[in-house]
Every structure is written in structure tokens, then in C-alpha cells.
Design a binder for these strands. Structure first.
Length: 436
RNA sequence: UCCUCAGUAGCUCAAUGGUAGAGCAUUCGGCUGUUAACCGAAGGGUUGCAGGUUCGAGUCCUGCCUGAGGAGCCA
């Protein structure tokens, strides 16, 4: 009978059995007549033990001389072992080398330390490392939790286009593309305007996809290509946005704590910081935020937007995300609904992550009045024709509606406790870096 | 775009203006419980590029290139 192939994740429940593991050689320690190959298979890492006296000489010698990241299939018996990292160990009975990495061109990422530039140039290999592997697994868990939250709360996933016509927003710098012969199109920076259309068709919707910003931002919080989830709800207000944003974040953090605790431990994340993420989140107004910042020595004046340092200063006061609402109209996009009690501010809210990770959510209530929206488009010098379809939404059954966008990479950076968002995605796209 | 810092062996780094070095990686040898294993030996260099100062430049000066951190920018 053939030896069953298992994954390393399952190894703990197969002790005593002879099994096969297909993977790569993560590292090899040897001591004369005994070698300890560390094998990874994508689900985990297991230490194997090969004893010279228990194996044919050719098999032992081949294993002993095997190079880092060579692919191999090992057969052996699993055994609970306190001395082994992971608690389970495999006594090697046979080895099939699938591809041997030549010693003349060894695997470049050694178990020792490396610099950022070198690692980024070898990102296609770096993602095999324990730490990067943990981050990308947590990213997957976060994305799955986000989708589960919306799928289980009556939202319909409606994808919005990546190619968009000229003027969607008018403020940020866009990536321009040639669309066949004459036409110019731009990579999307948000699916929101389309979300407003789909929300009027489906009630509650979300879009989840990549977004692109051609800003020359060179900081630890920026990528040029990043993923955003954007819910939009018909018959909804700013208060609904705050409630959903809070529920979503609590749900996502709880799921990561439930399902990805070993990975968080690998990253040496302070779990108490994540366990503190419970409703209700503090809610403050923009006015109060400005007062708090001025008291802390910031130069910000009422009417200005927060810089990265301001966001960090604000988040210092709280052990959970803080919601800041009612921003001055001039710092927000044209489509924000003014506060009926105070026309100089709009019904928008930003959610700032704790520990200085900055804005992870931005959103609010949209203008639903046709004439007001036309006025705003004119005030922002946007081309009216490009917004004809968007204005239609205010002609045919317009209702109060609201939504927000959440940046996936900043969320991952926060939950993982990373220094830089470049490690939150397999192949980051940044200013001056587009390879691999 | 601006400011600051850096660039030396495959990698991480050292070297007062005076003979370019260490650890890791690689190769060879040793070791039956290693935990980024350890011990011994060997090979490995156009000091980012182009000029300049100097008897002499990895080191000082100028320009450029590349990268990093930050600012600005960024619903």
C-alpha cells in the first residue's frame, strides 16, 4: 500500500504512522552521523531526523549534502518529540530529491540577516521565509473575514471596473493608460461612484479589488497599488457607516485572534493590544481632534487635513480605533453630504488605527440631492458630462446613502504590528519599485 | 519634488588619508540531539559610476546613479 502523503499542518494527528511529506529543505543541521533536515511544505515546518546507521549510505549522503531550498519528498515515521521545534518529528526512511539547488548558485536568502533592498529584490523567494509566510497567511485570514462579514450581513459583492474614464475625482494623480487607438483611461482609485449605482440596484453592496494612486508618496504607509474593500448602503446615514465599520473591525480582529494565533506569535505581536479591540470605539468630532492635537503641540489649524504625525498623535490617546467625524467640507471630496446643522462640515468619518498605523477607513454619507450635487461638481471644476450617469442616480429614486473604504494593507500592517506596508502584500508596488 | 543618511566579498558589516578585513553563505575535513548548531581549513574584491585634490583616496571635494528614512502629496 502506498504511503499516505500528509501536510505538515496535520502531522500532529498522525504520530506513529509512516507518511510522506512533499516540500522544500528549509535548513539543514548536521552532526557527523546524524542530520536534522528542516522541511517546509507551505503549511508549516517540520524537523526530520536521519541517522546514518538506519539508512542506506547513498540516501544518507545525499541528504547530508543537500542544499537549502532543494525540493524533496521525504518518507518516514512521525513521532512526538519534546526536543523538536513543533513537537513532532519525522524519522527519515527515504528521500526523493525532486530538484537539487546547485551549490555553485546557492539559495540567496540565508538564515542570517539581510537588508531591505536585497530582500525586496528577492521578494519572489523572501515570501518562503517564516515571517513573511506568517504575514501573508494573516492577510488571507483578514480578507476572508472581511468577505464573510459582508456576505453574512446582506451585502452583495458587485465588482467595479479597474479602467475608469477621465474625471472620477479630480484631486489625486491617476495612472494613465492607452485604451486602443485614441482613448485615454485611468486605473481606478476607488470603486465608490460605481458602488453608489449598484447600491441603488441591490440595497447593500461591496466591492473588493485593487486601487491605484500615482502619488509620489514615499512613506511606510503607502503603496501605489493596494487593495480596498468598499461597502455602500442605500437608505443609510453616517451613523450606519460608523456602526458597520466598528462591527467589521471587531469581527476581523477576533477572527485573526481565533485562527491565526501561531502566526501572530511568529511575528511577536503583542496580543493584548489586539484583544483590546472591542466595541464601542471612541467617537470624536473633527473639532475635538483639532483641539487635542493643538494641546499636544501640533501646528494644525481648523480647516486643515491631518498629516501622518497628527494621526499618530491622535491614536496615542486610545487603545482601540478612534472615529473622527464631521470634517470641514474643503478637505473632503465633492460628494460628501453637508451636516444639516452645520453646513461648513460634512457627514464624513475617518477611522484611525491604534499604535500610529493611521487611517484605515474613510467614508461617510453621500449627497443625494440633485441640485446640490450639480453645484458641488461645478465648484470643484469637474467636467459635468463625465458625471451624467452619476447624476442620474439622484434623478431616479434618490435616497440617503452612505459607505466607506477600508485599506487592506494598512489593516494587515496594524494587525501584524509591522513597520512598513510593503510586507503586507506578496509583490508590493511602490514608488521606484515595480519588480519582481 | 524637497531634506537626511547609506552604497566595500553572494549576504550583513568593519577598516585614523598609508598592506582592503571579519562573521555568515560556498567547497573540503571533524562531530549521533542539533535549535540562525558548533570546530578547523580553503576559495572569493574594478570599495556604485565619472572626474578632482594628494607622494598616496574605501576614506576628502564635485557631479551622477541606486537604495533607505522622513516631509510634502495622498477621500
Amino acid at each position: 500500500m502506498a504511503v499516505p502523503r500528509i501536510t505538515i499542518r496535520e502531522a500532529g494527528s498522525h504520530t506513529g504512522q509512516t507518511v510522506e511529506i512533499a516540500g522544500w529543505l528549509y535548513n539543514l543541521r548536521k552532526s557527523g552521523k546524524i542530520v536534522f533536515p528542516l522541511v517546509r511544505d507551505g503549511t508549516g515546518i517540520i524537523q526530520c531526523v536521519a541517522v546514518k546507521s538506519a539508512l542506506p549510505e547513498a540516501v544518507f549522503d545525499e541528504l547530508k549534502g543537500l542544499t537549502q531550498e532543494s525540493s524533496l519528498i521525504v518518507t518516514g515515521q512521525l513521532r512526538a518529540e519534546e526536543r523538536a521545534p513543533g513537537g513532532v518529528e519525522l524519522d527519515v526512511q527515504g528521500v526523493q530529491v525532486v530538484q537539487r539547488v546547485p551549490e555553485s548558485d546557492p539559495y540567496p536568502i540565508t538564515p542570517k540577516e539581510h537588508g531591505v533592498d536585497f530582500l525586496m529584490d528577492h521578494r519572489h523567494l523572501w515570501i518562503r521565509s517564516r515571517r513573511q509566510h506568517a504575514i501573508l497567511r494573516i492577510r488571507h485570514e483578514i480578507i476572508r473575514a472581511i468577505r464573510d462579514y459582508f456576505d453574512c450581513n446582506g451585502f452583495t459583492l458587485v465588482d467595479t471596473p479597474i479602467f475608469t474614464p477621465a474625471a472620477c475625482e479630480g484631486t489625486t494623480t491617476l495612472f494613465e493608460c492607452n485604451y486602443f487607438d485614441d482613448e485615454k483611461v485611468y486605473l481606478t482609485q476607488s470603486g465608490q461612484l460605481y458602488n453608489e449605482a449598484t447600491a441603488m440596484a441591490f440595497g447593500k453592496v461591496y466591492t473588493f479589488g485593487p486601487t491605484f494612486r500615482a502619488e509620489k508618496s514615499k512613506t511606510r504607509r503607502h503603496l501605489t497599488e493596494f487593495w480596498m474593500v468598499e461597502p455602500e448602503m442605500a437608505y443609510a446615514t453616517l451613523e450606519d457607516v460608523k456602526r458597520v465599520a466598528e462591527e467589521l473591525i471587531v469581527f476581523v480582529v477576533r477572527r485573526v485572534l481565533e485562527n491565526r494565533r501561531p502566526e501572530l506569535t511568529t511575528l511577536e505581536r503583542d496580543l493584548s493590544k489586539l484583544e483590546a479591540i472591542q466595541a464601542p470605539f471612541p467617537r470624536i468630532s473633527y473639532d475635538e481632534a483639532v483641539s487635542r492635537l493643538q494641546a499636544k503641540g501640533s501646528q494644525i489649524q481648523w480647516g486643515g487635513d491631518f498629516g501622518g504625525t497628527d494621526e499618530t498623535l491622535l491614536s496615542e490617546d486610545f487603545d482601540r480605533p478612534v472615529m473622527v467625524d464631521r470634517y470641514p467640507a474643503q478637505v473632503k471630496a465633492f460628494y460628501f453630504q453637508p451636516d444639516p446643522d452645520r453646513p461648513d462640515v460634512v457627514l464624513g468619518v475617518d477611522v484611525l488605527a491604534p499604535e500610529g498605523y493611521g487611517e484605515i477607513i474613510g467614508g461617510g454619507q453621500r449627497i443625494h440631492d440633485y441640485d446640490l450635487l450639480v453645484k458641488r461638481i461645478e465648484e470643484h471644476n469637474l467636467p459635468r458630462e463625465a458625471f451624467d450617469w452619476y447624476l442620474d442616480l439622484r434623478k431616479y429614486g434618490s435616497v440617503p446613502h452612505a459607505g466607506f473604504g477600508m485599506g487592506v494593507e494598512r489593516c494587515v500592517a496594524w494587525i501584524c504590528g509591522l513597520e512598513h506596508v510593503r510586507e503586507t502584500i506578496a509583490f508590493p508596488r511602490m514608488l521606484y519599485r515595480t519588480t519582481p
